[in-house]
């Protein structure tokens, strides 16, 4: 009946020394590209030029010409191991070394991952939940889940069916308006979903795939390649749907109480350690106006239909 939540530990900002270490990003004689993706400003500099190019292809519409205050700095530095003489790629975020990878095809996913880490640690404004976020007709849906539960696949499926996109990684809730903010990072699709999503019309370039640790082969898709107007404006939350992959079992959806939903959302929130009581009040306010469900995903088309039916029931005021 009562249940304790595992609360993520608060992560501290980098020290001055760490921040100074990244100032090398402005060196090397090249102009550093800057991007503003939703509320997130970032620059990426890579010794592996194709990583900069691939990042630019994904985020070209969000390119800006000057760095914003509080910009996140990501660097990829190639170094040879003095012992093996193998080349390794060191991925740094705001000067702190976050990953070291061996394979060039592993670099871009880890750059994306590094950006997610920086957002979760240092973006103070919004309340953050680990979730995919979509919207339809101005109504937002949060799909919260830990990794591996199928939230990205479900979001991509909804995208192909005309839904608008806000995020594949974070539900960013403005604490003043309680609206969802778009953070339209590229969707990171795992190899196991390539065929299904391709059949649904997602323009995935699977030849441009990458390697992401335990996730294996992944491909990135810029939502604007699906539709030019695919990215949603800020919107209120109308649905909260917790997906969980059910394998071969038929998809099913069942209502969840709002209190249970708030409890589960706080467990996958990156901001709760910082917001604390205010975070509880904020989420309770958000969820009090939403309908909440637990979805066992499986067949993607059927899963999307179940979500759409819930939205339809909400819009028509059915119970």
């Amino acid at each position: 009946m009562t249940q304790l939540a595992a609360i993520p530990t608060r992560l501290e900002p980098p020290t001055g020394k760490q921040a100074a270490a990244s100032s090398g990003a402005r060196l090397r004689g090249r102009e550093l590209p800057h991007y503003r993706i939703g509320p997130v400003s970032v620059s990426v500099r890579s010794d592996l030029v194709e990583v900069e190019r691939a990042f630019h292809e994904l985020y070209e519409p969000y390119r800006v010409h000057a760095p914003a205050r509080g910009e996140f700095r990501i660097e990829v530095i190639a170094k040879r191991s003095p012992r093996s003489l193998r080349r390794y790629y060191h991925i740094r975020g705001n000067g702190e070394e976050l990953f070291t990878v061996r394979h060039p095809r592993s670099v871009l996913p880890h750059v994306e991952w590094a950006l997610n880490i920086l957002v979760s640690r240092y973006l103070p404004v919004c309340f953050q939940i680990h979730a995919s976020v979509m919207s339809r007709h101005g109504v937002g849906i949060i799909l919260p889940a830990p990794c591996g539960r199928g939230k990205t696949t479900l979001a991509a499926g909804l995208l192909t069916r005309g839904w608008s996109y806000l995020s594949d990684e974070f539900a960013l809730i403005d604490p003043f308006t309680l609206c969802l903010q778009p953070y339209p990072k590229a969707l990171c699709v795992k190899a196991g979903s390539f065929d299904t999503l391709a059949r649904m019309g997602l323009p995935l370039n699977t030849r441009e795939s990458y390697l992401k640790g335990e996730k294996g082969r992944v491909a990135f898709i810029n939502p604007l390649r699906v539709r030019r107007d695919a990215v949603a404006d800020p919107c209120p939350v109308g649905l909260v749907v917790f997906p969980d992959y059910g394998g071969d079992a038929p998809p099913a959806i069942e209502p969840m109480s709002r209190a249970r939903a708030v409890f589960e959302l706080l467990r996958v929130s990156f901001s709760f350690p910082r917001f604390r009581t205010r975070g509880l009040d904020l989420l309770a306010g958000v969820v009090s106006k939403a309908r909440c469900y637990r979805l066992r995903t499986g067949d993607l088309v059927k899963s999307c239909e179940l979500v759409e039916a819930c939205l339809q029931r909400r819009d028509s005021g059915e119970g």
Binding site: Q3, L4, I7, R258, A259, F263
Partner: peptide, 15 residues
């Protein structure tokens, strides 16, 4: 139903 937050121990409870 309710969600309780214990600020002293930073724990959440669902009732």
């Amino acid at each position: 139903e309710a969600v309780l937050y214990d600020p002293a121990h930073h724990t959440l409870h669902y009732l």
